[in-house]
Nucleic acid binder design. Structure first.
Length: 635
DNA sequence: TTTAGGG
DNA sequence: CCCTAAA
């Protein structure tokens, strides 16, 4: 069954720690979709906003130079050319596929730096609003790359504004309709922007806000980074915002998780539970959920940041004595050793596989991507360091020992975002030959397939936050064979690593209006048969109207599709049905005899709330004689 | 997880 | 049937 399968896929969701993986069949399906070119479809790269902290004068000039007219123009051309080159083959192939689903792998996208801007930016204002829209998309055949174009940059008072438009007719070829805009990015506070597109562009701006920092040779990237993002002059405000976002994120995710759990067959969860060493399925599920929620979710990550901020002020120059962060302290260099300055333009993150029908709206695509990213981020991520393309696993090594020094060519240095492997107890379904299970090489592939949101593409969907159409998202846990990504070649400058992470994380939930994904499809209607009604009435007569679980157990134990809520609902309708004229009743007629019993029981239990509930069937003569029916108060 | 009710 | 606040 299609629906079922989709649910399974979805439920598996994300292979971040503690989350069950998709059934093999599901994952294999994804794998099979891969082509040789798929290896190119490397992990998504989250474009990171990074900054190089320089002396005021230096920085200022640098930033302005980064986007002077000439460079800018070239940039645009290059990108355009890139699009044309790569999209052509895709177009021919896609035509063969008919009007079916487009599968895209999001390679990279920017994330907004300012939440307000993000929410308020109407489509029509893209041209004017400072921001960056960057979307990379490659179809499964690896033939289609399209990116948004950087249209211009203006700067005022140190702010850098990158206006990126999306050229209709270019990138649109890949999706079949409309442009693709996942978000805008206001660089108001950004100190640097790296766009890892055909040609990287870096914007260095507003140096007042050090989102970057110097690192001591002994410092760990992660640790430093974790402090950094918050190290803005408006630290408190940012942090508050961050927390708010975190809450939103939480609330956003919860329903999804619940759906997932709900959707999963108990059988599957039981399996999962066993995999995790829980003896009881229900306990396992609960534990899983809670554990993840408390340990690996966004909250944990947040706590970690806070913790580190307070704990190791000496480790980072951006942390002030009072635990707060100030920009002023950032400029202070460590007294010993050389300083390594890095600029991170982008992070490679686990691949996100997205699948949407051509008829899906751009808005739904955006949301789909958003959801995929949200799920990815919700699992907790960590930073990986690559030197010469090789992952540096030893965290104890000093930077210089690793080869990361001011003398070295830092082009060999790369970073990745990855799920926290340490949180992965045991790879599920590791027997799958198609799926490498090295936890340190985790890579996510999320498949999103809106199926119901096949509405007519509407530009409004993109801009009207209040007009969001449901989209479908299904996440397929997936461990790709992509373990070590190419280090990004042009990254150098200061490293506010986690800064970017925080931004990314904070942004996702913001734009994500929690909406029901099609995951939670409405159950098929299954009218109660007379027999069922009889059983229900019988049980209620004996147990009362406040013990639906018991009713379920007693009369519908084996009817998996009848939940106690269903029974309660049915009783509710029965009471109503019995109360109205027979002519007004619909559906399969319920014998009047049963309806009489319904009213009788209803009346009885209304007057005996709890009195007999502890015992078995209340052999109350009043009820049996139907007197309760008339008076409602028969005792 | 259940219960209780509104949607 | 769904969704959820409460318990």
């Amino acid at each position: 069954m299609v629906f079922k399968r989709k649910l399974d896929c979805l439920s598996v969701g994300f292979d971040f720690p503690n989350v069950p993986r998709a059934p093999r069949s599901c994952r294999r399906k994804v794998v099979n979709n891969k082509t040789d070119d798929d290896t190119q479809i490397c992990a998504i790269e989250l474009l990171a906003l990074a900054g190089k902290l320089l002396q005021e004068s230096e920085s200022s000039s640098a930033s302005s130079n980064a986007f002077d007219g000439t460079n800018h123009d070239n940039f645009g051309k290059e990108i355009k050319q890139e699009q044309e080159d790569k999209c052509k083959p895709f177009k021919s192939e896609s035509s063969d596929q008919g009007n079916s689903t487009e599968k895209c792998v999001v390679n990279s996208f920017s994330f907004p730096d300012n939440e307000d801007n993000m929410e308020r930016t109407p489509m029509s204002d893209y041209k004017k609003i400072p921001g960056l829209t960057a979307v990379g998309c490659k179809n499964m055949n690896g033939n289609c790359d399209f990116y948004v174009k950087s249209e211009g940059i203006t700067g005022e008072t140190g702010d850098v504004n990158v206006n990126t438009g999306f050229e209709q007719g270019e990138a649109t070829d890949c999706l079949g309709d409309g442009g693709l805009i996942t978000g805008t990015c206001n660089l108001e506070d950004a100190t640097a922007l790296g766009v890892q597109f055909p040609k990287s562009v870096r914007v260095v701006g507003d140096l007042k806000s050090p989102s970057s920092m110097d690192m001591t040779p002994n410092g760990s990237f992660a640790r430093h980074g974790n402090h950094t993002n918050l190290g803005r002059r408006d630290d408190d405000e940012n942090f508050y915002s961050y927390q708010k976002l975190s809450n939103k994120f939480k609330s956003y995710r919860s329903p999804t998780i619940r759906k997932i759990r709900k959707s999963l067959s108990s059988k599957y969860w039981k399996q999962v539970s066993r995999d995790f060493g829980h003896s009881r399925a229900d306990v396992g599920v609960k534990t899983l959920y809670r554990k993840r929620k408390s340990c690996y979710g966004f909250n944990a990550w947040q706590r970690e940041i806070i913790y580190k901020r307070k704990r190791s002020p000496d480790r980072s120059s951006v942390v002030t004595s009072d635990g707060g962060l100030s920009s002023g302290s950032v400029s202070k260099l460590p007294e010993k050793g050389d300083t390594v300055k890095l600029s991170i333009k982008s992070f490679r993150i686990p691949e996100l596989f997205i699948e949407v029908p051509e008829t899906a709206t751009v808005g739904s695509l955006k949301r789909t991507v958003m959801e995929a990213v949200s799920v990815l981020l919700s699992g907790g991520i960590r930073v990986g360091v690559l030197m010469h393309g090789k992952k540096v696993r030893d965290d104890r090594k000093t930077l210089s020992q690793t080869g990361i020094s001011c003398d070295e060519n830092l082009d060999n240095l790369g970073f990745t975002l990855e799920p926290s492997p340490s949180k992965v107890p045991v790879p599920l379904c590791s027997e799958d030959p198609n799926v490498p299970t090295n936890p340190t090489n985790l890579s996510e592939r999320s498949a999103a397939s809106p199926m119901l949101d096949s509405g007519i593409p509407h530009a409004d969907d993109v801009i009207s936050s209040g007009n969001i159409v449901d989209s479908n998202l299904e996440l397929v846990p997936y461990q790709s064979d992509i373990s070590v990504d190419e280090p990004s070649l042009d990254s150098r400058a200061l490293v506010p690593l986690p800064t970017e992470e925080v931004k990314a994380l904070a942004i996702v939930p913001l734009n994500q209006k929690p909406k029901r994904t099609e995951l939670a499809q409405r159950r098929t209607r299954r009218p109660f048969s007379v027999t069922e009604v009889e059983a229900l009435v019988q049980a209620v007569e004996e147990l009362g109207t406040g013990r639906w679980r018991d009713v379920k157990l007693r009369a519908f134990e084996n009817a998996d599709h009848r939940t106690y809520v269903d029974l309660k609902d049915k009783w509710k309708t029965l009471v109503h049905t019995a109360s109205i004229a027979p002519q007004q009743r619909r559906g399969e007629p319920v014998p009047q005899e049963l309806l009489d019993r319904v009213l009788r029981a209803y009346g009885y239990w209304s007057q005996h709330q709890g009195k007999h509930q502890a015992r078995g069937a209340p052999k109350d003569p009043d009820m049996n004689r139907g007197r309760a029916l008339e008076s409602g108060v028969s005792v």
